Simulated scan of single mutants.
Amino acid sequence: MTSFSFSPEMAMSCTRLMRSTIAVKETIGVVGRRTFSAKKKGGKGSAASDAPKASILSNEVKSTTVVCGNILKDGTDPKITADSDYPDWLWNLLDKKPALSELRRKDVKTLGFGELKRYVKLDNRARIKENNSIKSKK
């Protein structure tokens, strides 16, 4: 009886052959499948399928933690604390910023740094759009 040794090259070639065979079978399976739209049970206007699903979180957890706020693998969701614990700039993030037309009406010397920066950015953007439209008409 002869001994048979299995070399790493043979293992790799067998693995590649199996992967290609599986990929071909999956492709044939996807191509060969018929696709139809699924019908909802209960016919038209089924109220059961339109009803919102019940939340699995308790009201206490919803009001005291930031749900899905954890970014660490082994961490927990952060707790919500009092408003005074957060920085002041946080409460101004969602405020409406003035449009370019409003900024043009104001005196440039009275604008704050943030408003002046926004004015320059929006004014440059408007001039670039105007120049591009003039070039495209030629």
Score class of each variant (00 low, 15 high):
Gly29His: 01
Lys25Trp: 02
Gly43Ala: 01
Val67Tyr: 08
Phe4His: 07
Ile80Lys: 11
Cys14Ala: 09
Leu93Cys: 09
Pro98Leu: 03
Lys129Arg: 10
Lys135Asn: 15
Thr76Pro: 01
Glu60Pro: 00
Lys109Thr: 06
Val61Gln: 11
Gly45Cys: 01
Met10Cys: 06
Thr2Tyr: 08
Trp91Gly: 06
Pro78Cys: 02
Lys121Val: 14
Lys73Val: 08
Asn92Leu: 11
Leu17Gln: 08
Ser84Gly: 00
Lys62His: 02
Pro52Phe: 06
Ala47Ile: 08
Thr81Ala: 14
Ile71Asn: 13
Ser101Asp: 14
Glu102Thr: 04
Leu103Lys: 07
Lys97Gln: 11
Lys53Cys: 14
Ile134Met: 08
Lys41Glu: 03
Lys73Ser: 06
Thr81Tyr: 13
Arg34Met: 10
Thr76Asp: 14
Ala126Thr: 05
Asp83Cys: 12
Pro87Ala: 03
Ala126Asp: 15
Ser136Ile: 08
Pro87Thr: 01
Asn92Val: 06
Ser63Gly: 13
Lys129Ser: 08
Gly114Phe: 10
Thr64Arg: 05
Thr2Pro: 13
Thr27His: 05
Ala51Leu: 15
Gly112Cys: 08
Asn92Gln: 15
Val120Pro: 11
Gly29Pro: 00
Lys62Tyr: 02
Met12Gln: 13
Arg19Met: 07
Val31Arg: 03
Leu93Asp: 14
Leu90Asp: 01
Arg118Gln: 12
Thr81Cys: 13
